[in-house]
Design a protein around this nucleic acid. Sequence first.
DNA 1: AGCAAAGTTAAACAAACGTTTAATTTAAAC
DNA 2: GTTTAAATTAAACGTTTGTTTAACTTTGCT
Lengths: 210, 210
Amino acid sequence: MEEYSEKQLSILMVAERLFADQGFHGTSVRDIAQEADVNIAMISYYFGSKDKLLESIFKYRMEASRKFINELVENDTMEPLEKINSLIDRFVLKILGEQHFQCIMSREQLNSQQSPVRDLIWQLKGEMLGILRPIVSSAQDAGIFYKDVDVEMLMTSLFGTIHQVIPAQHILRNSPEAKDLNDDEYRTYLRNRVSTHLKKLFKAILTHEF
Amino acid sequence: MEEYSEKQLSILMVAERLFADQGFHGTSVRDIAQEADVNIAMISYYFGSKDKLLESIFKYRMEASRKFINELVENDTMEPLEKINSLIDRFVLKILGEQHFQCIMSREQLNSQQSPVRDLIWQLKGEMLGILRPIVSSAQDAGIFYKDVDVEMLMTSLFGTIHQVIPAQHILRNSPEAKDLNDDEYRTYLRNRVSTHLKKLFKAILTHEF
DNA sequence: AGCAAAGTTAAACAAACGTTTAATTTAAAC
DNA sequence: GTTTAAATTAAACGTTTGTTTAACTTTGCT
């Protein structure tokens, strides 16, 4: 995997933020060059093209995501519900920590025509499902979890909820409970609120008797 | 509210589809004109500009959405959980029935700079919350629903799950259970699967004792 | 028929787009 | 110090963008 110089990283990060805020086609390479304080030509020089720049962002973040997923649950002494809770905590922490990239992912997965970027997204979701499913099924077999639960849909709710929280933050920020918090406090407040909700959701549907 | 001629409606629907598939900035007015089989100038002539065209799509769909929301639960003889289930059923039916528009909404709500379009989105979500919250609180007061549930986050999960299902369809379509269905059968299969999951989710978290 | 408004068209518009060029500066190697 | 490659720049490239123009056709009304 390639390593990036400080200048290249600066371009990547600026591009990530602008793509997240205004969309890929809504951001010009001139915008990126200006905010990153580099010459326009440097973008093509380093990354080849605007499309390849987006791909580079994905490769950069996806490598970390894949590593993250594979480290998600290695502790086998935990109870199934503890595993789920730990998974949710770390998942929320991760996604809310890279909101710009997640924003781009949300956008890109909506594109109808398939692209290398879209393939990467679904591949990652598949790997995530590969982590969650065995935890649930083994607990189901042991009679700890409720049998009749749609694991794929449950993971859809997991992704969907967090991805829905990201654009909702501008609203939540002004709610009476969060108004007086500073930025750092707000981040922990939000993280905790989302985590708590998701853990309840998972515990309820996984252990509830219908 | 304005009424549209057949030709204007054709432009609106084509634009909606293309904006959903390729994004607003990813779609040119020439693309729209060509697919709708009209002259490029007609778009400016009818709608003023490309931006106003997007706004027109939103006004067109949002009017229907607002009416839909206000009709969501009028039957007061239903049990709280029945109300919720009815709400979920109709909500899923509605959203999966206008996927192109929902796709655009998903995209637009991610934009950082505020716009008339973004304001409309959050206004609608607020109205939706205004329907859901009293149902839950009154049932909580009656001791039917579990007290300690975050209604806003629950609605976030509702929106998030369905919005996450939309781009996931290309994948789900090829799953072993759905592969042999025709398009109509698949639609009902999907609608049912999402509805069932969400009803379970809501029932579990609303009535579960922690 | 005659007239005014609405509808429709091909062509042109300037601006912005992503990318490339060619010249110049910086850095590294011998 | 000379040489070679990498980095950096301003300018220009050809497209494509959204929008407008001006001429033309159709429609509806009296």
